[in-house]
Structure formats: C-alpha cells, structure tokens
C-alpha cells in the first residue's frame, strides 16, 4: 500500500509537466497576444515586448526556459498584471475559492448522502420521488440562474443577505448554497443508484441472513459499497471546486481562482495559465489518489497490486 502511494505521488510531477506542456502548446497556437488592444501599440514597443519575453526565440528555447523555471517551482511574473508573481497570485486567491468550495462540498455531501440513502431505502416511496425531483431541479437549474434568483429573494425581497462581494459570513451563504445545489443533486442521485445496486448483492443478502439489524446492514455494509460512485465523483469534483468556479465567482464578485483562471486564458497570460494548470493538475491527481486509496477502505474487494 505504502509503495503504491509513493509510486503515485512520484508520478504526479511528470504528469503535471505533461499537462503544462500541452497547455503551453495550446497557448502558442491560440490567436492573439497578451498585449493586443484596440489601439495598436507602437512597433518599437511591440518589438521590445517580444524581445523581453523571448517571444521570437525558437520554440524549443522558449519551452526549455519555461520548463526550467517550473522545475525551480517558479512560474514567473504575470504578463498582464505587471510585476505580480504567479505564485503570489495563486496563493492570494486560492483561499477564497477553497473556503467557498469546501463549504459547498460539505453542504452538498450532507444533503446528498442523507437524501440519497433514504430515497434508496424507500425506493418508489413519496420521499424517493420528492427528493429525486428536488435533485433533478437542482441539476436543471443552472447556477447562473440559481445565483441571481437567490439574490433576488434573499437580498431584495427579504433584505437578509448581501447581494455580492466578499465580506463576513453572511456574504458566503448565497454563493455556497448556489454552488452546493448542483453537487447535492449529483451526490443524492449517485448515492441512491449506488445503494440500490449494492442492496441486492450477495454480501448484503448474507448480512441480512445472518440476522443483522437493517440499520447495521445499511450503515456497515451497504453504504460502504454504495458510496463508490460518489467517491469516484468526489475526486475531480472537489478539485474543481477548490480551484474555483467561475460562474459563482462572477455572479457574486468573489476574487477566487476560477475567474482568474478563465481571465488568464482569455488574456493569454501564459505564466499565470501555466501556473494554475500545474496547480490544478497536482490537485486533481492528489484527490484522485486519495479516492483510489479510499476505494480500498470502502470496498475490501478492491486491491492494488
């Protein structure tokens, strides 16, 4: 097990490098530059800019410089935001996204697991239909619709919560709920499906036959196996949540990493894009590793050689 974890951890570095390299190539192909604007900039200034950032060097040289910088853990300075180191930008904006993402995921997990479990146990009951309909609603209302709707109700009808911007606990409620809705729905549906699948497997039948109480059958045995799909889903979902979600950040004017990532892509701010991609890829891989480890604990049938 330890060897497995170690091997996977070691793999993360080359994997992140591959992700960064592919992204680097994509930026090169994408049209436009970070300095383009409506007003043409003076030719000499453009030449100096290109010289300063080595944009006219042969590609392998640029690639080499990029790799060696990253190998030193230094992603360089943002092109768009004069003088701001990429590492600093990520460190500065990550906490906003992370707080909102984590809270949203915990909320989603709590709601989704409970609703999904009850729905599965009482398949085809009124609760099942009601909660699954609610889940479907959560899925079919896009967050760019849900967010403004919540603002309308809670900020302008009830005058309870601020409509946007970061500042204090009250300002977190609406974005967290907006973000959590869709994930709660996912989790509820995946839990229900997973549980239904497991409930008819041999080991549950065995457990029941042993005369275990229904409660312990579910909590000790069924939930473990039934959670697999939820766990699979959690890895990438949590990584994506922590790294920020653009729409919610835009609607609520939160200075999170998601919006900055999109902006950096649109601005062709290469060092910033690469820095965030490297960060996200490491995050995704770590979470997926945790998920793979969790598989083993949840379901003893899964073994890694």
């Amino acid at each position: 097990m330890l060897g497995f974890i170690l091997k996977r951890l070691l793999l993360i570095i080359p994997m992140a490098l591959i992700a960064v390299s592919v992204t680097w190539a994509l930026i090169r192909v994408a049209p436009g530059t970070f300095y383009s604007s409506e007003k043409k900039i003076p030719a000499a200034v453009e030449a100096k800019l290109r010289e300063k950032y080595g944009l006219d060097d042969p590609w392998y040289k640029q690639y080499g410089i990029m790799l060696s910088n990253i190998a030193r853990g230094d992603f360089g300075i943002s092109l768009k935001y004069e003088g701001q180191p990429v590492n600093e930008i990520i460190a500065r904006h990550l906490p906003y996204s992370a707080v909102i993402g984590l809270l949203a995921y915990l909320l989603a997990l709590a709601i989704g697991l409970v609703a999904g479990t009850i729905a599965a146990l009482r398949q085809n009951s009124a609760f099942d239909y009601a909660s699954m309909a609610a889940a479907m609603l959560g899925l079919s209302v896009p967050n760019f619709v849900l967010g403004p709707l919540l603002v309308l109700v809670f900020s302008f009808w009830l005058y309870l919560l601020p409509p946007a911007r970061w500042g204090g606990f009250t300002s977190l409620i609406l974005p967290v709920v907006t973000l959590a809705a869709i994930y709660a729905a996912y989790i509820a549906r995946l839990t229900r499906a997973g549980l239904l699948e497991v409930m008819r497997s041999d080991y549950i039948r065995t457990a029941r036959a042993k005369g275990l109480s229904e409660r312990s059958v579910i909590l000790r045995h069924a939930l473990r196996g039934g959670l697999l799909p939820v766990v699979s889903f959690t890895g990438p979902a949590l990584a994506a949540l922590l790294a920020g979600t653009v729409v919610v950040e835009k609607v609520f004017a939160i200075p999170g990493l998601g919006n900055i990532f999109i902006q950096s892509v649109l601005n062709r701010d290469e060092p910033l894009v690469l820095g965030i991609v490297a960060f996200i890829s490491v995050l995704v891989m770590i979470f997926n590793l945790i998920v793979d480890i969790a598989y083993g604990f949840i379901d003893p049938r899964i073994r890694y050689e």
Binding site: Y96, V99, Y159, L160, G168, F169, T170
Partner: peptide, 27 residues
Amino acid sequence: MNRSVGKILSFSLIAALLFSVLSCSRV
C-alpha cells in the same frame, strides 16, 4: 485574507443570521 477567513470561521451561523437581519433591515 487570512484574517477574514478566521473571522468567518469564528462567526457562528446563528449569530451571523441574527446580525444580518438586524443590519440589513428594509429601507
């Protein structure tokens, strides 16, 4: 940033809700 995160965590849900009701009354 760190300060505001700390502040957020230190707020309890109920206190916050109460606060918001009081501070953002209809104008």
